[in-house]
Design a protein around this nucleic acid. Structure first.
Length: 906
RNA sequence: GGGUGCGUAGCUCAGGGGUAGAGCGUUGCCUUCACACGGCAGAAGUCGUUGGUUCAAUUCCAACCGCACCCACCA
């Protein structure tokens, strides 16, 4: 093995290529009775580049998939990409513009041809980057949301929902993005706080009986430019201030339109002036109020939110912002602008374009979600699917209970075109393609008809909602039973979905709803929602802040394993994680530690032997080690169950086991045995070699899902595993707790712990005394026979690790110490010892024990404690007190010793 | 306005009814033949505040104070 581990991208690529070439990621299909285990990768945007969120997402999925494979499941992890309608169309348009091609001049067909070409050229970058991350998905099954099969599935789903009346066309107010010139769904709206002007405007009352001359009603608005669309002024029916104006009329200034003053309970008396201008075509509340009162609709904006021909000529063609200024100036000059107040308010913006949205009256396709939502909610309530962390359940309920129709159509070209054709009379014909539509139309109308397909495409999330089953073949064929696809029958439904909480409603809920609708079954049993990744200071990562970390760059510098391990160790359900480079560096060091442990075992001649049986092990420290290993395996099995998903716990257990337990304790302890040269030591040496190799093999397999590259490389290159040459670690079975058969080893485990504790103690004292780490210090003591035997038995270990050598008797300048309440050995002191430090230390220990003593006595004297505390607690408390008293006595003796020595020295 | 989560060591974060944990940083010692991307030893916390439940609260409950985020509304 090389002295240093090679973290380079090239080394990792070689390993990955080997896995892929050998088909290690392929699902097995219907063979050898293995249980299927399915995971759907959330398809990244085809325009995407791997960002840190993907890295987290896919690391966690990969850990589980690799583990399940090791556990013997037939795993299918299906990857793919999403066509990402708006994002892709924007990107390609921009690129074309750079090439001097004006998108507005292109035909739909030409634009799509360009986009497809772009997709062929760049669409696979993100998939390559996922390979870099080590993602072990079944690439041969990769899908794209606009490939032929999936497009077919989309049409089938749409048509079926259409036939059932769940999908319908309607003219309603929608959120309109004036830059992209398309409708978007409620979920794509982002509220942004903005400073604005609250304008109080006088609307003159129409003179009639009961109306004073020159009187007016004052309305308040943040959007004065919309007054051209005003069709009423509304007040609350119980508002005393406006009682006299009931049934009166007023004049909308500038528009010079007479409108009624109406009453409606939805008007808030406290807001503004309590009089609300009603612009039904440009405000959601106004739209509702207008509907109740039979008002017409008056749209004053065009698709780009410029004023249209409905407004007086002077204002036509102005932008929203220009119009606002102009209106204010004109109102001012007419003396109708009563007041302007500065006020912050939140304004809806388009998530993609970033511009302020405009409610706009258009014909769009909608999907009625109510029934679907009810079923999705019920399924989660019944725990057919569980959410991790569970705190999302509340949010889930809230959203599904208040669900609104989903605006499905987008005024774009890139996407699944709506499979509806119109006759010249506007009749709808639903069909999978034009030929079928013509046929249907002819049958329906008894003659040939000219048809025109709907221009719009579907929201990208519609195809995403079918992802868990469309990718497995559901509806991929034009006809026949959509459920017959073999992959679908074997691998649906899936076990687990891992994704960010930010798309819980966009995606997760909709998959749930459509899966229940089309498959009559939940699409996944567990949804693991991970949190957001923030930078070291806890800020959201954003391009504008410039704090976006590039996972590829991190992998280049620290290796993929270090990044993966860091992400896993920080993945605490329900909490944002801050990514600091220091942590990644620490985990890079961890990989190095692993590598060096392998080198050490290799050098020591430790070789893995598959015939080795744990039960035959005799050495106490080996028994202790195997017991610890079993506890580790048990812990990991529990932490990594689908419905638990405690990646951070698992990672931390592995970290501490390898570094703290295996390297620092176990390997150090067996070093003397490994170094044994004489024949009589041979048995111990052989046992040390074989057990350490066996344990290491277990650790490497347990670590593999987290750090696939380093473990694989060790498996292939380290002589410890020479007998396994040629096999891939990722195809090896994992280590199960049940593989470690332990005997009745309690005594050995206790003894080993005792020795390790003793070593700690001696080291600590040595350090205080300032003893040279190299010097071997003789020690002796008046101890129990049993203890003395132990000290002799572990003599080599104590010499190597604590630098002490046991003598059965001694006399001179020495100092005792307390361990375990029964041993009171003494260390011989060389001249240069720091007795003062030792003295301070003893004093502190005495104080500590004194505290414990007081505490315990107080508790034990408390009658209520004695009555109520459970037995084991009571017993522990009593033992604690005894120990404390004992130690205090011993420590006092030592204090005396020190005093004596100091006296002697003086 | 409704909801969710978080305040624990200098920093970043785990944990969880029975005398506080990790990584990084820091202090001292060690260039000992796996590893200085290392080893050994140490210092460092009234676990946000105030009440309540309990024999026992950092942990459970309530209120409050701060900090995030989500949903709705904003005339």
């Amino acid at each position: 093995m090389d002295k240093r581990y090679d973290f380079s991208a090239e080394a990792e690529r070689a390993l990955y290529d080997d896995w892929e070439k050998r088909g290690a990621f392929r699902c097995a299909g219907r063979v050898d009775g293995k249980q299927p285990y399915t995971l759907m990768m959330p398809p990244p945007n085809v325009t995407g580049r791997l960002h840190i969120g993907h890295a987290l997402d896919n690391t966690l999925q990969d850990i589980l998939v690799r583990l399940r494979r090791q556990q013997g499941y037939d795993c299918l992890w299906l990857p793919g990409t999403d066509h990402a309608g708006i994002a892709t169309q924007l990107l390609v348009s921009r690129q074309l513009a750079e090439q001097g091609i004006a998108v507005e001049r292109l035909s739909r067909e030409d634009f799509l041809a360009h986009t497809w070409r772009w997709k062929e050229q760049y669409g696979n970058i993100i998939l390559q980057q996922l390979r870099r991350l080590g993602a072990s998905c079944d690439w041969e099954k990769a899908r794209f949301t606009m490939d032929e099969g999936l497009s077919c599935a989309v049409r089938r789903a749409f048509l079926e929902l259409y036939e059932q009346g769940l999908i319908y066309r309607d003219e309603r107010l929608v959120n309109w993005d004036p830059q992209l010139q398309t409708a978007i769904s409620d979920l794509e709206v982002r509220q942004q706080e903005e400073r604005g002007q609250l304008c109080l405007i006088d609307y003159p009352l129409i003179e009639e009986r009961g109306v004073e001359k020159g009187a007016s009603i004052t309305i308040a608005t943040m959007r004065p430019e919309t007054l051209f669309g005003d069709l009423a002024v509304a007040v609350h029916p119980k508002d005393e201030r406006y009682r006299a104006l009931r049934g009166k009329r007023c004049l909308v200034p500038l528009a010079e339109r007479e409108v009624a003053i109406i009453e409606d309970e939805r008007v808030e008396r406290e807001q503004g002036t309590g009089a609300l201008k009603i612009t039904p075509a440009h405000d959601f509340l106004d739209f509702e109020i207008g509907k109740t009162h039979g008002l017409a609709l008056c749209s004053i904006f065009d698709a780009q939110a410029r004023l249209n021909d409905e407004v007086p000529e002077a204002y036509r063609g102005l932008s929203r912002e220009q119009a606002r200024e102009r209106v204010l100036v004109d109102l001012q000059s007419q003396g109708l602008l009563r007041e302007i107040k500065q006020q912050t308010h939140s304004v809806p913006h388009g998530e993609r374009s970033g511009v302020a949205l405009e409610p706009k009256l258009t014909k769009q396709w909608f999907m009625n979600m109510e029934g679907l939502a009810k079923d999705a909610l019920a399924a989660v309530e019944r725990r057919e699917t569980i959410l991790i962390p569970q705190t999302w359940l509340n949010t889930w309920r809230r959203w599904l209970e208040n669900i609104q129709p989903w605006c499905l159509s987008r005024q774009l070209w890139w996407g699944h075109r709506i499979p509806i054709w119109y006759t010249p009379d506007g009749e709808q014909v639903a069909a999978a393609n034009e030929a079928e539509a013509l046929q249907k139309a002819e049958a329906r109308f008894g003659k040939k008809v000219v048809l025109r397909q709907d221009e719009d495409v579907l929201d990208t999330w519609f195809s995403s909602a079918l992802w868990p089953f469309s990718t497995l073949g559901w509806g991929n064929e034009k006809e026949g039973d959509p459920n017959k696809a073999p992959l679908l029958q074997r691998y649906f439904s899936t076990q687990l979905l891992v994704t960010g909480f930010d798309i819980l409603f966009f995606w997760v809920a909709r998959m749930m709803m459509l899966s229940l609708r089309f498959k009559n079954c939940v699409p996944f049993k567990v949804v693991y929602l991970h949190a957001l990744i923030r930078d070291g200071q806890g800020r959201k990562m954003s391009k504008s802040l410039g704090n976006v970390v590039d996972p590829i760059d991190l992998m280049d510098r620290y290796g993929c394993d270090a990044l993966r391990f860091t992400l896993a160790s920080q993945a605490v359900p329900g909490r944002d994680l801050r990514l600091s480079e220091k942590r990644i560096e620490g985990n890079r060091n961890f990989i190095t530690k692993l590598w060096n442990a392998a080198r050490f075992l290799e050098m020591q001649g430790c070789r893995y032997d598959e015939n080795f049986k744990t039960k035959a092990v005799e050495g106490a420290v080996h028994r202790w080690m195997l017991t610890r290993l079993r506890a580790l395996a048990e812990g990991l099995e529990e932490d990594l169950r689908d419905e638990v998903c405690l990646f951070h716990e698992a990672a931390s257990k592995l970290y501490h086991f390898l570094w703290g337990v295996f390297c620092d304790e176990y390997l150090e302890t067996i070093k003397p045995a490994l170094a044994g040269k004489e024949d009589k030591d041979e048995k111990a040496r052989n046992e040390a070699r074989v057990v350490s190799a066996w344990v290491f093999y277990g650790v490497v397999r347990l670590l593999h899902p987290f750090v696939p590259f380093a473990t694989e490389r060790i498996f292939q290159e380290c002589q410890v595993f020479a007998s396994s040459k040629g096999r891939l670690l990722m195809t090896e079975k994992t280590l199960r707790a049940e593989d470690i058969v332990c005997g009745d080893w309690d005594d050995d485990v206790a003894e080993t712990k005792w020795v390790l504790g003793l070593i700690d103690k001696i080291r600590s004292i040595r350090s205080d005394l300032g003893l040279s780490p190299k010097a071997t210090v003789p020690w002796f003591g008046d101890v129990l026979d049993r203890t003395e035997k132990r000290l002799e038995k572990w003599g080599d270990v104590l010499r190597a690790m604590a630098g002490v050598e046991w003598r059965s008797i001694g006399e001179g300048r020495e100092i005792g110490f307390v361990y375990d309440g029964v041993v009171e050995p003494k260390l011989f002191l060389p001249e240069e010892v720091d007795l003062k430090a030792m003295s301070v230390r003893i004093k502190k220990q005495l104080d500590d024990w004194n505290k414990v003593c007081k505490n315990s006595s107080a508790k034990l004297d408390n009658k209520k404690f004695k009555e109520n505390a459970p037995h084991n607690i009571l017993k522990a408390e009593e033992e604690k007190l005894t120990e404390a008293k004992n130690n205090m006595e011993l420590l006092s003796n030592i204090q005396e010793d020190i005093k004596k020595i100091i006296k002697k020295l003086l």
